Lab assay of single mutants.
Amino acid sequence: MTVLPKDIPGDSLKVTVGTANGKPGDTVTVPVTFADVAKMKNVGTCNFYLGYDASLLEVVSVDAGPIVKNAAVNFSSSASNGTISFLFLDNTITDELITADGVFANIKFKLKSVTAKTTTPVTFKDGGAFGDGTMSKIASVTKTNGSVTIDP
């Protein structure tokens, strides 16, 4: 049996954390987006972790974005102690894959008090994996961190 590389060099799934701005007490939304989904033969499963400074940001909610089908079954998240974990699994293993680019999740943060303008990162942590529509590992994932700026 011969195994051929399935990824064209330079191609990767792009996962990007967005940015937001606000004043202390505001609730802002930071999107997590996927790009080049079709090039990577869709997404059938993924789990990953984001870190944030809990002294500056309070997670209000984490909701599935419009590219997630049947989110009540296929999407899960949790947030505590400065870490947000995400889990997606197409429970049907074929019919509810992520097949389009767009917003995977929206994180709502309540901004805490600061004395001066502060930009705090929302960054990928170690761990996690992504699988394509056949549940094979997506070897190349380009992750881009985001941030939230609090301006009193």
Rank of each mutant, 00 (worst) to 15 (best):
S85K: 01
E58L: 10
K125A: 01
G10S: 11
T92Q: 00
G44V: 12
S80F: 12
A129L: 01
V59A: 07
K41I: 11
F130T: 01
L97V: 04
N81A: 15
G146V: 05
A116M: 05
G82I: 15
V32G: 08
V122F: 12
P66C: 13
D63C: 09
A139V: 06
I138S: 03
T45Y: 00
A116P: 06
D95T: 04
F104H: 02
I107C: 01
T16G: 07
T123E: 03
P121D: 05
K117G: 04
A129S: 03
K108V: 05
S78C: 15
T19C: 11
M1I: 11
I150A: 14
F86W: 01
V60E: 10
A72F: 13
N70Y: 07
V3A: 10
K117I: 05
S12P: 11
D63R: 13
K125Q: 02
L87N: 01
E58C: 10
G18H: 13
E96Q: 14
I93F: 15
V122Q: 05
P66R: 12
V68F: 08
F86K: 03
T115A: 07
S147C: 05
K112H: 04
T134K: 11
K110V: 05
V32F: 08
K14H: 14
T123L: 06
I93Q: 02
A72D: 14
L50E: 08
N81H: 15
D11W: 09
D126E: 14
V43F: 07
T45D: 00
S76G: 14
T92A: 03
G146W: 01
G146F: 06
V141E: 00
S140M: 09
M135H: 00
G65T: 10
T149R: 14
N47W: 00
T45Q: 00
A35M: 09
G127N: 01
G25Q: 13
S147M: 06
E96L: 00
V68P: 10
L50P: 05
G51W: 08
V114G: 08
D63P: 09
V3K: 08
K110F: 02
K117Y: 03
V43N: 00
T19N: 13
G127A: 03
L4D: 13
G18F: 12
V122H: 05
V59W: 09
A20L: 13
T134E: 06
F130V: 02
I107L: 04
N70M: 07
A54T: 12
S147L: 06
K41V: 11
A35E: 09
